[in-house]
């Protein structure tokens, strides 16, 4: 059984002239144990797809199964299977790190003692034990990300959704998050990761899909996508994932006034 299956997933906002098709029929099949990358330019439909798969947004048309559970028919069941860390590190700034994790564990049905133990374990895991009893308001961006990641793991989900988990982080914090994503995955958790950083996708993902304008336009392993581009263009040099992305999305790079700009 696949970890994630989506068939003809669509999301439409508004009516008439104001109708916007954010996602226009996405099909996905993510195997258990994979780290699956979901790439695309801003506004391509990445976050909307993640929000539909995680029950945070209604699905206009199509069907999605996560951990074998239909997210529309049984959203509660699906929520027990997934962990979610969205673009904005969703944290309550007035609580301490320990309180946030304990609360999250309690909401997943753990008794107070188990929840407290799980919080301590996760704080150690993300190396926030020293800051555990400080309010989150005083945490750095990297600390907030790590805490957010920890809070998505309290119930040891089958599938972890990470929506741009390293956006805004310094390089050292980014590598720390990558390491943790690998470790989580090695323990059997499927990871569905959206990112704008192609290097991140290249480093972490077994397979990836590129979405643009609400449709998936490339899908495969990083190496197969690069090979396909090299074969198609007859290039001597090995293409990078950046080249694959720019080719797929129809964007090009132009050097203008000393700056490299991505244009369509």
């Amino acid at each position: 059984m696949s970890a994630i299956t989506a068939t003809g997933l669509q999301k439409t906002y508004g009516d008439g002239d104001k109708r916007v098709e954010a996602v226009r029929g996405v099909d996905l099949d993510v195997e258990r144990g994979e780290i699956f990358g979901f790439l695309g330019p801003n506004g391509a439909g990445k976050s909307t797809t993640v929000r539909m798969l995680t029950t945070l947004m209604t699905i206009t048309a199509g069907r999605a199964l996560v951990g074998g559970i239909d997210v529309t028919a049984d959203p509660h069941g699906a929520r027990r299977k997934i962990g979610v860390a969205l673009q904005e590190a969703g944290l309550d700034l007035r609580q301490t790190g320990r309180e946030i994790l304990t609360l999250q564990a309690r909401l997943f049905g753990m008794n107070p003692a188990t929840a407290k133990g799980r919080a301590a374990e996760l704080l150690e895991l993300v190396e926030l034990d020293d800051a555990a009893d400080r309010r989150v308001k005083g945490y750095s961006g990297g600390m907030k990300r790590r805490l957010d990641l920890a809070s998505a793991l309290v119930h040891e989900p089958d599938v972890l959704f990470l929506d741009e988990p390293t956006t805004g982080l310094d390089p050292a914090s980014r590598i720390t998050v990558w390491d943790e994503v690998r470790r989580i995955n090695q323990l059997g958790t499927t990871v569905f990761l959206t990112t704008q950083y192609l290097e991140e996708a290249d480093q972490l993902c077994n397979r990836l899909a590129i979405i643009d304008d609400g449709r998936i336009i490339r899908e495969g392993t990083p190496s197969s996508l690069k090979r396909e581009l090299r074969d198609r263009t007859g290039s001597d040099a090995d293409p990078t994932l950046d080249d694959v992305f720019l080719d797929a999305t129809g964007r090009t790079r132009e050097k203008l006034a000393g700056e490299v700009k991505e244009v369509r």
Partner: peptide
């Protein structure tokens, strides 16, 4: 970060009953 260690009560965490 330190590696994740799954403890013995993993099952109770995963299958903890809903609170109501």
């Amino acid at each position: 970060m330190t590696a994740i260690a799954r403890s013995d009560d993993t099952v109770s965490r995963r299958d903890a009953p809903a609170n109501g």
